[in-house]
């Protein structure tokens, strides 16, 4: 007996549930149709719109739909893929660097960084006690065997087909493993709210420029990947007043000086000037090459910091 009653009650419940759901569905569909009809009938306001070919047309206001706004996905997709057929390299001629720091300014401007945050930093170097000091701009080396991407637990930092190593700040969880792994200290962490965060809060995130910067994530030099897409040289390269930087495509065996615009053979430049890479013993295979500070382009008397007319 007991079991029967419980059965009955379950049936009753299911019945009433089914009826109520069905009724709700019918009512809501009626109301939807009604609303649609009302919208169609209403002579509504007309809006004047200018078409792409310059004609002024009137459109029913009810027909207007917001444009599909998903540029983020597109940016993320192409940022992950990179530019096919390219293999970007940079050559830095140390004999010409006189610490003008225009590269740093341009970079910080491009990537919305504060003055104390560096994607590229000009370091004062002295290799040993009796060797001559020199200035060394140091961007991310965009290694062909990058230690940073190996340690990322969430696939946020990666290498693209054109050789550039990027960070996806949308994925980055801020664990900073990559900062620890990078032997060149090329990466920075956004500890606080980034510069102009309020101003750029509505900007669509661009993975190829790391802008707007995101608090609690890692950021670094990107070879200005967004500018390369427009066939422009990276910000630092074109900002240098002293002809320090060469940038180009290794597949084409040509690099272009950002200051003079002169294009030279990459292999010859490296070969004739004894070009080298930083910490090659680590096997990271950097894409940034350095030319030694020989035959300086400026008067040099051994004391870089007290040098006059350096810039």
């Amino acid at each position: 007996m007991k079991e029967e009653t419980s059965n009955n009650s379950r049936r009753k419940f299911l019945k009433s549930f089914g009826i109520s759901v069905g009724a709700a569905g019918v009512v809501s569909s009626f109301s939807l149709i009604g609303a649609a009809k009302a919208a169609a009938k209403k002579p509504a306001e007309m809006v004047n719109l200018l078409t792409q070919d310059g004609q002024l047309v009137q459109v029913d206001k009810n027909q207007l739909r917001p444009t599909v706004n998903e540029p983020l996905d597109e940016l993320q997709k192409r940022g992950r893929e990179g530019i096919p057929g390219k293999s970007f390299v940079m050559v830095i001629d140390l004999s010409k660097c006189r610490n003008a720091r225009k590269c740093m300014d341009a970079c910080q401007n491009h990537h919305q960084l504060r003055a104390d945050q560096h994607h590229i930093n000009v370091l004062q170097m002295q290799d040993a006690e009796h060797t001559a000091p020199y200035f060394m701009p140091k961007p991310c080396q965009h290694c062909d065997n990058p230690p940073c991407t190996k340690v990322c637990p969430v696939d946020a930092t990666f290498k693209r087909q054109d050789g550039i190593v990027l960070i996806d700040n949308e994925r980055c969880i801020g664990c900073r493993f990559c900062i620890a792994a990078c032997p060149y200290s090329a990466r920075i962490f956004q500890w606080t709210e980034p510069k102009d965060a309020e101003k750029y809060k509505d900007l669509t995130y661009n993975i190829e420029a790391n802008v707007p910067q995101k608090k609690g994530t890692v950021s670094k030099c990107l070879f200005s990947a967004d500018r390369l897409r427009e066939d422009k040289l990276p910000s630092c390269v074109s900002a240098c007043p002293n002809g320090v930087y060469y940038f180009g495509d290794q597949n084409e065996d040509a690099v272009t000086n950002g200051t003079t615009g002169e294009t030279v053979r990459f292999s010859k430049l490296i070969e004739e000037n004894a070009g080298y890479t930083l910490m090659e013993e680590l096997g990271t295979k950097p894409r940034v090459y350095y030319l030694p500070p020989k035959n300086r382009a400026f008067e040099f008397n051994g004391d870089l910091l007290n040098e006059e007319n350096l810039h």
Binding site: K86, G248, T263
Partner: peptide, 10 residues
């Protein structure tokens, strides 16, 4: 001149 990515190679 040969066209390269960022300039012309002489």
């Amino acid at each position: 001149l040969v066209k390269r990515s960022f300039g012309y190679l002489d």
